[in-house]
Design a protein around this nucleic acid. Structure first.
Lengths: 220, 220
DNA sequence: TCTTATTTTTAGCCTTACCTAAAACCCTAA
DNA sequence: TTAGGGTTTTAGGTAAGGCTAAAAATAAGA
């Protein structure tokens, strides 16, 4: 059973919204994600249900099936491999690659993806730090480090905080850090463990060891 | 004015059939080339006429316009650059690349093509020996050499014969050479200028200097 | 020139993927 | 337990790109 480009895109959206195939997803949410109308989504959900990549009960939203999850992960794999190609080989900036990868991910050729993977040296993460599923759909999550565990000159991306109190999040917001921010360790002060951090390649931030220990990042 | 994937494919077919935008092309010929029905072609010709990439007079076939020629050459450029990528970088065989390139050529990103061109070191010919138009649509035809002018170990492709008498073409056919054949010069005999030539990577052919001088090839 | 054969176009219908408007359904609060 | 209100589906329509069957235009032969 092959999927059209539109079907692949819907399936990918449903996979993302369902938090890795765990939660069920509403028609409205899919419509928002796909920037389309709920009526169009209903149509498409019926089709995807017929193809058994989702379980669809009218009025009750959808759950992705095992087969659907596998298909979604294949598409995500292709997307992320192309992103690596664009950044590593064609010198694209990491924020320029998404739209092009969105087109490239629909090219149908298992051989192409196999060869591309080898050519890129079997990368495990894309330029945004997101993991690349293997050809069976297995994802190896990248280990998270607290910022104070990172070394000077290492780069990464903030993915979570340990203490998610409103106060701490407010502090983060004030200094211009946020979940998803790209960071680089510029300096670590031996004496008190405080750090100097470059955020989004433009803003420099000073933080105490305690603050740094509260912020989790993945390396890139 | 943007073209859909289908429109790009029709335009490319019309360009090829019109021998580089010189001859006019019939509905039936386009239908045969596109493996579709004449009725579908009529529809599409009206659309392409509206977009002014062809000149369409009902019942009298079409001529490609200057704008159409430019568009067709852009698509051909993208197709051939991707073919080079697949062969040079991803180790595809030269006869495995066409279908995948047929998909890749429709990716819309001028930056991608520009970067790909640079990455491949501005190739002038694709793996089949066909010239790659530059970004303005200019094509530099590859100089043709008679086989006896080629050196040992050089590879190429037969593109024409000087003497196109039936007798000579019949002889070529008998020995298994043909327009389009991939060849490699294995040996040249100093004494009489006769040559040993590998055809399509499998058949070895001996020919006199006179015969070799009658066959034109491009180098690859 | 007239008739026939061939080519091309039109007419009408299908599928995919979208849309709007209206109907149906689910849920909650009075 | 029923009336809204929000969500979701259905009904019907559009555009792209295909199809078949039939009509129309061109070309060719007597």
């Amino acid at each position: 059973m092959t999927l059209t480009t539109a079907e692949e895109n819907y399936l990918k959206a449903i996979y993302h919204l369902s938090d890795g195939a765990t939660k069920s997803v509403s028609t409205n949410d899919v419509a928002a994600e796909m920037k389309t109308k709920p009526a169009s989504v209903s149509d498409m959900l019926r089709k995807l249900g017929d193809k058994e990549v989702i379980e669809y009960r009218k009025y009750y939203g959808v759950n992705i099936t095992e087969e659907g999850k596998k298909r979604a992960l294949q598409t995500i794999r292709k997307h992320r491999l192309w992103e690596v190609f664009l950044v590593d080989k064609l010198q694209f900036a990491w924020d320029e690659v998404h739209e092009v990868a969105e087109e490239l991910e629909h090219i149908q050729s298992p051989l192409l993806i196999q060869r591309l993977d080898a050519y890129l040296n079997y990368p495990k993460f894309d330029p945004h730090g997101d993991p690349i599923p293997d050809e069976y759909g297995d994802v190896r999550a990248r280990p998270r480090l607290a910022l104070n565990e990172m070394d000077v000159d290492q780069s990464g991306q903030i993915v979570a905080v340990k203490d998610s109190s409103a106060a701490f999040l407010k502090y983060l917001d004030k200094v211009g850090a946020y979940i998803g921010a790209r960071i680089k360790i510029l300096d670590k002060v031996e004496f008190d463990g405080s750090m100097e951090i470059l955020v989004d390649q433009k803003k420099t931030l000073f933080m105490s060891k305690d603050v740094a220990a509260n912020i989790l990042a993945i390396q890139s």
